[in-house]
Amino acid sequence: MGELLEALVSPLGQGFVRRALAAGITLGAAGSLLGVFIVQRGLGLLSDGLAHATFGGLALGLLLGASVDRAIWVALPFTVGIALGIQYVRRHTRLGGDVATGVFFAVSFAAGILFLGLRSARSAPVNVDALLFGSLLAVSPEALFVILAVAVLVVVVLAWIGPRLAYATFDPELATLSGVPVATLEYVLLALTALVVVVGVKTVGVVLVSAFVVVPAATANLVGRSLASIAVIAVALSVGGTAFGLFASYHLNVATGATIILTLGACFFLALVARRR
């Protein structure tokens, strides 16, 4: 058993694997904490929409002359702006969150394609596949630092607003009557989600990043009995699933992001079956 475990984690001897593991579990923990609120609010598609908006932001950064690594600094404010726009439409129109997300997602993605097309012919070619599917094993020290900073920000802000955000998630009207600034907290939740999604796109790509936010929280929601236990289970699943998926992909020589998400998905279906019993 010990030898098996040793063999499984042997890739940790390489620096890029250590960085990938640190990035993955940090991103997963922060994403799943936010996911607890996102899933409870029925906004599971939001992170997917924001991931596609990130593509638009990265493309805008590239159009402005930034490298792929530096384009994240354009994508961050771009995606946060999209998140706030979605929340504004949710609060001030009769359209639901899914409709608002659908509109912003489509427009941002289309804008991203347009931005890439508008780049001068002399610009360095962009690997669109890398944007869409990411590369956890290629996380640079600089990208890891950004991920850690965003995760610390998420944890600190959620520690501060989490109980009030939970009350607003339970019942916005009752929370308002108890003095909770419901609208402000909802904007903060979406802005934090946008930050995690943007840095997540760099590691697992546009297509898979929302799974980091939604799947562990959805799984925990199936088995947890209180909000606190749901949060703990979501983070544990995310960290464990990321580590297992990373090592498994290394040994099987298959795509890392997809293996992690499939691991998290397997946990979801196991929980679903266990719950039915």
């Binding site: 009350y167 019942d171 009207e173 009752l174 909770v180």
Partner: peptide, 30 residues
């Protein structure tokens, strides 16, 4: 305030003790 229509999120894992204390604290008790 006792509302007529209960607009709470039915999927939220809430217990009576938590709902009562939320009104007392102004935040959900973890």
């Amino acid at each position: 305030y006792l509302p007529q229509a209960k607009g709470f999120n039915p999927g939220f894992p809430a217990r009576a003790v938590e709902l009562i204390l939320a009104n007392q604290r102004g935040a959900w008790p973890l």
